[in-house]
């Protein structure tokens, strides 16, 4: 920074800091998905179709999550039904 810069108004938050923040969020998110089996999205789609036969739900209303606890995996299914 030059001597003259001291008289200028303060600069806004640096774009590098924004880049780092955005990267930390997206990388953490993608690492979470990395270990899920390939069949999970297809299975989620099929489960959604079955539920839709009975109740009108949107894609976002069905959450399928696979968690590993030591030597067993837990498949968690969350469906938000319209009230």
């Amino acid at each position: 920074m030059s001597f003259l810069d001291y008289f200028r108004s303060k600069r806004p938050a640096s774009s590098a800091a924004t880049a780092k923040e955005r990267l930390q969020v997206i990388v953490a998110h993608e690492r979470g998905q990395r270990n899920q089996p390939d069949y999970l999205p297809a299975m989620q789609q099929e489960i959604l179709e079955v539920i839709r036969k009975y109740v009108p739900v949107e894609q976002d209303d069905v959450q399928v999550q696979l968690d590993e606890n030591g030597n067993c995996s837990v498949l968690e299914l969350n469906v938000t039904l319209p009230g």
């Binding site: 590098a16 990267l23 930390q24």
Partner: peptide, 16 residues
């Protein structure tokens, strides 16, 4: 550019 805050630093990339 790193010291001007326009580019990710080595430490930033190592962190991520």
């Amino acid at each position: 550019r790193v010291s001007a805050g326009e580019m990710l630093s080595v430490a930033d990339v190592e962190d991520i």
